[in-house]
């Protein structure tokens, strides 16, 4: 008898959990309509859209050919690569970061404080989590588009060394997730445009120092360790492993790091939007 009661209590508890889990995920519902809205709005901003595509190309052409002539080859993962080959996958990660940061900071701040787009959204069944998820998904979608184009260029140029490279675009999207999540969360704390100087202050060193342009072995300690703690490093290393075919177990760490950062950012952004707009 009591075993039966226990079982039904267990069942009830399980149902309660299932319900709560469903409710948690239900809060992301409708994010697609936010993505669709951004797609419509973006049609009028095509030049801005294209800039995200040319940026990594410029880096590759200028630094790649310039420094490439001086440097010659780079030893990486026990193999040797040309300098262009070495920085190309890193630029894939870096441009994913740049695109995600631009979308999730400047654009989100504008919509939050000036265009007040989110106030309108929250008067509908959409909740703050759906809004945050929609914005971040949009950043990812754009990022995936750029990454695909850039990867094709690398393929044609002969810089792709491995079949793992089919995962290079999903990986770039993951980098985008990490930075869009973190960027949007940070944006909800910004009070004015001045605060965006901080964004540059973070993004530029990340771009230059995350083993993007030279391998980890060239960094003096303890900077090497410090670099390994930053997010773009994990993105760069992941892309290199995929494109250059130097895959090993450390990829798991890279993926987890980026996934955790992105998810935490997304949840934080949702909560902050709620605090700011539903007062």
């Amino acid at each position: 008898m009591s075993a039966l009661a226990d079982a039904s209590a267990d069942q009830e508890q399980a149902a309660g959990w299932a319900y709560r889990l469903a409710a948690e995920f239900g809060q992301f519902r409708g994010a697609g309509s936010v993505v669709a809205r951004n797609g419509l709005a973006a049609r009028r901003g095509l030049p801005v859209l294209l800039s995200g595509f040319f940026e990594p190309l410029f880096y590759l052409l200028s630094l790649g050919t310039g420094i490439g002539v001086l440097v010659g080859g780079v030893e990486y993962g026990g193999k040797s690569f040309s300098y262009q080959e070495f920085i190309a996958p890193a630029l894939l990660a870096a441009s994913a970061m740049n695109g995600a940061v631009a979308d999730s900071t400047f654009n989100v701040f504008w919509k939050l404080k000036y265009a007040r787009v989110y106030d309108g959204m929250l008067a509908t069944p959409l909740g703050p989590r759906a809004v945050a998820a929609g914005e971040i998904c949009w950043a990812l979608l754009r990022g995936a588009g750029y990454a695909t184009a850039f990867l094709l260029i690398l393929l044609v140029a002969g810089y792709v060394q491995s079949w793992w490279a089919v995962l290079a675009v999903p990986a770039a999207t993951l980098v985008g997730l990490a930075f869009a999540g973190a960027g949007m969360a940070a944006t909800t704390f910004m009070r004015s445009w001045q605060d965006f100087d901080l964004v540059h202050l973070v993004v530029l060193p990340l771009l230059l120092l995350s083993t993007t342009f030279y391998p980890l072995s060239t960094y003096p300690q303890p900077f090497g360790v410090l670099v390994q703690l930053t997010p773009l490093y994990h993105g760069v290393e992941l892309e290199r492993a995929l494109v250059l075919g130097t895959m090993d177990a450390s990829a798991v760490v890279h993926v987890l790091y980026l996934l955790v950062l992105g998810t935490a950012g997304l949840l934080m952004a949702g909560r902050r939007l709620e605090r700011l707009l539903l007062s």
Partner: peptide, 27 residues
Amino acid sequence: GVVPQKDLLDEELTVRENLLVYGRYFG
């Protein structure tokens, strides 16, 4: 249906798009 004190229309969209997009928010 909510008509707030300030209009808060989506200025990146056209008149019709404002209606279309808003309807999509309702699923």
